Measured scan of single mutants.
Amino acid sequence: MASQGTKRSYEQMETDGERQNATEIRASVGKMIDGIGRFYIQMCTELKLSDYEGRLIQNSLTIERMVLSAFDERRNKYLEEHPSAGKDPKKTGGPIYKRVDRKWMRELVLYDKEEIRRIWRQANNGDDATAGLTHMMIWHSNLNDTTYQRTRALVRTGMDPRMCSLMQGSTLPRRSGAAGAAVKGVGTMVMELIRMIKRGINDRNFWRGENGRKTRSAYERMCNILKGKFQTAAQRAMMDQVRESRNPGNAEIEDLIFLARSALILRGSVAHKSCLPACVYGPAVASGYDFEKEGYSLVGIDPFKLLQNSQVYSLIRPNENPAHKSQLVWMACNSAAFEDLRVLSFIRGTKVSPRGKLSTRGVQIASNENMDAMESSTLELRSRYWAIRTRSGGNTNQQRASAGQISVQPAFSVQRNLPFDKPTIMAAFTGNTEGRTSDMRAEIIRMMEGAKPEEMSFQGRGVFELSDERAANPIVPSFDMSNEGSYFFGDNAEEYDN
């Protein structure tokens, strides 16, 4: 993207840094990872977990959730003011799984939030270390993106479920800051804005008074975040219109849905970061690795190297396929839920299948599930090659597409044709070009129609051997075009429920 120079890199967003050079960025990201790792080690000690239990991804998720809940100030305040039966607002906890007599047992633990905050700050040299908290939120978000298709949420806001490739980060909490905003897809931002506008339509006082002023500035800020994701002048001009509207209503909703559809071809720039579970960072720190000293990046080879040398386990339900569970977590670790499966298959070195073909449910185990038949197995999170994460949407291309997802959002900077089903997408653009945004709409449609099938995206960008740390010898991959490109292809993934 041309304006790259004016933006802070995501590592800076990730670490609240002012302008830093590459070495400083690597050190501050490393410091953040160190903090998460030290916190995780301490929690495993508190909970008396064995090494194996500490490497269980379900335990990692519970521990991450506990610290996120302990620092969720708004919710904590709300819980104190609106006490609900049987919930102690000062405590947080969740299921911890232990191996007892050759069987997995679930144990519900409860801790004072104050105590968890103390352990977290102690692991982070006394700081609140917001960057580390956001990092864990993005890992949870990436896992949700890989596990669930947001059909219901899309339909509720009037969008087409086939636009799911635009929904990265749709389950990120509001408090995820600049680093969170960077990884949100165009569809996620559109959905947040539509929800806001709908509230304004239904509630006369939404934009009024002292609160209304705050609401208005939040609305304009979200519009600017979305505008910054678009790469064409016409899309940005249309966002200006939406932002400046005196009284946002149905016309703005129409414009936003139009823009979301246009992003299936004229893709937005959305950041991709490899955020790993805390149970990967903990053992690495415990083994003596100093992330701050060595430096770390979320968008280069580092996460690949770390996963190459990590042992992570997962509980497996009786009829689940461990290899499929591994694929789910591998995609989440690489922030690749909406990437082209052919690119992923090449990088991973084994075939990556669409969601609907995987015999696996989510990673988390519900409290009512029976533990008797639970097994555990090693997650295979290694890769054959590594590639640089991208934040450009890439230019655009036609490809055989599917009944489910009709476009992709690249996660890796790797040369390819970008699949999208042009006739299906263009069919949504018939007729409606009147109104105050008509010239911009016409211009956007013209650009979409001009998108050429034979153009290559990320020209000359390749993948790298894991021994090639400096990215000196790019390998331009070859793809098996007979395979499906979309992950949520004609899909039956479970729906995400809060």
Rank of each mutant, 00 (worst) to 15 (best):
E192H: 08
E375S: 02
G362L: 11
Y313Q: 07
N211R: 12
T390Q: 14
Q235H: 14
D255M: 11
E375T: 05
S262G: 02
M456G: 05
L68C: 06
F489A: 10
A451I: 15
L133Y: 03
T146H: 03
S69Y: 07
G17W: 03
S50C: 00
K184H: 07
I425M: 05
V414N: 10
R446K: 15
R156E: 08
R213N: 10
Q122L: 05
M196T: 04
P277H: 05
Q308L: 03
S345Q: 00
E254C: 12
D88A: 02
Y313H: 05
A427V: 06
N144Q: 15
V109L: 14
V183H: 07
E115W: 11
A387D: 13
F230S: 04
Q168S: 04
A373R: 05
M43E: 09
Y487L: 13
S314H: 12
V299E: 13
Q311R: 00
G362M: 11
T350L: 00
V67S: 02
T157Q: 02
I194E: 12
G212N: 04
L143M: 05
Y281G: 09
R391K: 01
E11T: 02
T146W: 12
I388H: 10
L418A: 01
S413V: 03
A451M: 15
H135S: 02
G295I: 10
Y111L: 15
R65V: 03
N334V: 07
W330Y: 13
E73P: 00
V109D: 07
S9Y: 02
M163A: 01
N224F: 06
M456V: 14
I365G: 06
Q122S: 00
R389I: 02
W386I: 03
I119W: 06
Q409F: 04
D491M: 15
D34P: 09
Q235M: 08
E339Q: 06
D439K: 09
G300N: 11
E46L: 03
Y296H: 14
S310A: 00
S69Q: 03
D88Y: 07
W104C: 05
G86Y: 00
S392H: 05
N142S: 03
F488V: 04
A493T: 06
M137G: 10
M371T: 08
L79P: 12
T15L: 05
R19Q: 10
G362Y: 11
R208Q: 06
R461K: 12
D112W: 13
S482A: 10
Q12N: 01
I119M: 01
L47W: 10
A234Y: 02
N473S: 13
R267Q: 14
F458H: 03
G200S: 04
V329Q: 14
E380A: 01
P161W: 08
Q459K: 03
D16T: 00
W120F: 13
I119L: 04
R118Q: 03
I445P: 02
G30R: 04
G288Y: 10
G200H: 07
S50N: 09
N473W: 05
R75F: 11
Q42N: 06
R174F: 02
D372Q: 15
I445D: 10
R121W: 00
A233Y: 12
A337C: 01
S345H: 03
S274D: 08
R441D: 08
A251G: 12
C44P: 04
D112S: 00
T390C: 10
K113E: 06
S60G: 14
D101H: 02
L61Q: 07
D468Y: 06
A70F: 09
G282V: 15
F464Y: 08
G37Y: 10
H140I: 09
R118D: 10
K113M: 13
K293F: 10
F304H: 12
M191N: 00
Y40Q: 10
L154H: 15
Y111C: 07
A471N: 10
L381K: 07
G249P: 03
L306E: 12
N59T: 01
D51E: 01
I96G: 03
D255W: 11
Q241N: 11
T171M: 03
N202E: 14
T360K: 13
S84W: 00
N498D: 08
D16R: 09
N395H: 04
S335N: 01
D480L: 00
G169S: 07
G132I: 08
L307P: 13
E18M: 05
V285R: 04
F291S: 15
M43A: 08
R267I: 08
T433G: 02
A85V: 02
G268A: 14
Q235R: 14
L315E: 01
I225N: 13
Y496L: 15
K305C: 12
A278H: 09
N395A: 00
R355T: 01
S69P: 14
S84M: 02
R102S: 15
D497Q: 00
R348V: 07
H324Q: 02
G126L: 15
L193V: 03
F458V: 12
A442R: 00
K273S: 09
R461M: 12
G54K: 05
W207Y: 15
G35C: 10
S50F: 15
R416S: 15
F291P: 12
S335W: 06
L166A: 15
G462L: 14
M448R: 00
N397T: 03
G177P: 08
M481Q: 15
Y78A: 03
A451S: 04
R461I: 12
K31W: 09
G212T: 15
R8L: 03
S335K: 06
G356S: 10
T92S: 14
E380H: 10
H140Y: 13
S50L: 04
R74E: 10
T171F: 07
G282D: 12
G460F: 02
W120Q: 11
K273Y: 09
E465P: 10
